[in-house]
Design a binder for these strands. Structure first.
Lengths: 262, 262
DNA sequence: ATATGCATGTCGCAC
DNA sequence: GTGCGACGTGCATAT
């Protein structure tokens, strides 16, 4: 087999044949896919056992591991990047063992039978861009403060104030202090409480009137009422609208603005 | 190709050849793996673009989709179970399109080149058991209340009391009311606050002295001090110790106990 | 190293 | 369906 080929596949291999390819994949830091009948043991922060069944094992070049059942978005077992792997033929089958430190934890995947092994040399430097995140909402409001309200002047953002971080603060057209909590989806009770807990400490600090505004695309069931109780305000704002705002504005303006973070 | 074979693999197929196998995999609800050079667009709750690069695409029989880069534990793009997929040859390559309702969102993966396609018929009914979860800590304390303290008598658990759920409550050897918040890892500021917010409402309700105990394997940096301030107590307890306790006790006892949930 | 909060979080459970 | 909290959450960031 050519060492540097992009792809090596074995179908219905013996366990011994599979072990050779797997070993080689580890040594060459290739992406490994194994399909077969296996059971799994995990010991670490918690402990788990997975009885025999047919699954996919994926091990990437950065030392991350995934065991996927034939259903479900999430891996049933995994190991984050930075694990070290070994493969070995044992009495009950081919064992792939992965261990990492900090925290110390290990996964042992034992295959009784293997349907396919695939070793791939993948190269990927493509950019990934995500839009309509909460951070984009922050940026959009800072860039166009009227998204919050006419006359709003941002002063700072992501500011530590005890007992946590305020998303954005500034002052309104009447010079009142305004603190803003931003959520990219329906605001929950939690969000309202999170905002409320900043009001008193900040009022004490700046020694003037403080308005608190919850910004989110919508409000949860009981949150409307809670806002009234807590003396908070609400401004509807959709993350996608924010993404559009940023898209329209040229980057240069944004960059200069952000370099001035106070 | 045998229709019902467990495994079908194409290496270095043309896009047209790949499309046939992918189409068939969708129709037969098989697990699909595609390795190749692709770009990805996602639109839904947010919006993302992934520039061309070599990745794995996995689509499972339940309609979940994963796009994995050669590094990282997490998929760069995905779709939870319940999506509908189509495959089509377009001008810029082979397009796999997946869409789901509620929320309405879609992923479009376009392959310029495919190195491997694999269609698998996986069967998996193996049990998965996780130990040392927070729920096991609950169970262990209910089964052996002395894990919390000598003379503790649990009354109920997972009880709605406004403004949320109390993990466990009961009374101590002196008849004082005890509410318990359990954490499976180092308790944070949040955990302490979460516990504290129940004390007053419950005191008002039961109209007698209320103790509040935070149970966790350890405490965060400032939490110790906060506990004093808030008048809360702390009991060190490791989730793995709880798992051991449960392991030693026979299931029958546990079952009967839990059927009596009040 | 620890702490804090976002995530296309996902998932399960109760109302 | 909505709400709420756990998760072996992972992850980035700031201290």
């Amino acid at each position: 087999m050519q060492e540097n080929k992009k792809l090596a596949v074995l179908t219905e291999p013996t366990l011994a044949e599979a072990a050779v390819l797997i070993e080689k994949a580890f040594a060459q830091r290739r992406t490994l896919i194994v399909a077969g009948n296996c059971h799994v043991h995990y010991v670490g922060r918690a402990r788990s056992t997975l009885e025999p069944g047919e699954r996919l094992l994926i091990i990437k070049s950065d030392g991350s591991l995934l065991v996927h059942r034939p259903v479900g978005y999430e891996p049933v077992n995994w190991q984050p990047a930075g694990s070290i792997f070994h493969v070995q033929i044992k009495e009950d089958g081919l064992e792939v063992y992965g261990v990492r430190q900090k925290p110390r934890e290990s996964v042992r995947v034992t295959f009784a039978g293997i349907y396919m092994v695939s070793s791939l040399n993948l190269s990927d430097s493509g950019d990934f861009l995500l839009h309509a995140s909460e951070e984009e909402m922050h940026r959009a409001i800072l860039l166009k403060p009227e998204l919050l309200e006419e006359g709003f002047k941002p002063i700072s953002w992501e500011k530590k104030v005890e007992p946590g971080f305020v998303d954005i603060y500034g002052e309104d057209k009447n010079g009142k202090f305004v603190i803003v909590e931003v959520k990219r989806k329906t605001a929950s009770k939690e969000a309202a409480l999170q905002l409320a807990k900043y009001v008193e400490p900040i009022k004490a600090k700046v020694n003037r009137e403080v308005r608190a505004v919850l910004v989110a695309p919508s409000l949860g069931k009981d949150v409307q009422r809670m806002l009234v109780t807590l003396g908070l305000e609400y401004k509807a704002l959709d993350p996608k609208v924010c993404a559009e705002v940023l898209k329209k504005s040229e980057n240069s303006k944004l960059e200069s603005f952000f370099n001035d973070k106070s």
